[in-house]
């Protein structure tokens, strides 16, 4: 990988880190639980994407595997959490 591409990836990772700040602020500000869940899901996807980009930048296979695991386990956890919240709302 050329040094130009490394710079592009570095800038992209910095931009992703900045775009994580938006859902973090939204999750902190919102009172409604479903809006908070949306923001949290967004944070989860974006952070796992940053991990994947980092794995390509550093050419490290193991970090990439943990990124893929983060994608599926994080989303599955949010689905379970949504069902629990729905049950609590019904009770």
């Amino acid at each position: 990988m050329t040094s130009v591409m490394m710079t592009v990836l570095n800038i992209a990772i910095i931009a992703m880190t900045l775009s994580i700040l938006i859902p973090m602020y939204a999750a902190w500000k919102d009172e409604d639980i479903w809006q908070t869940m949306l923001s949290m899901a967004s944070i989860s996807t974006k952070s796992s994407l940053i991990v994947l980009m980092l794995s390509v930048l550093r050419d490290d296979w193991m970090i990439g595997v943990s990124g893929v695991i983060m994608i599926s386990v994080g989303n599955a956890g949010f689905m379970l959490l949504a069902h629990i919240l729905k049950r609590m709302g019904e009770a």
Partner: peptide, 27 residues
């Protein structure tokens, strides 16, 4: 690995969207 990432991203994010939509509308 990256193809697996794309597939799991598509499947899980779409399913999460459906679950969030149905649960929040029920609530």
């Amino acid at each position: 690995l990256l193809l697996l990432a794309i597939i799991s991203l598509m499947l899980w994010n779409t399913m999460l969207g459906y679950v969030l939509a149905s649960c929040s509308s029920d609530a």
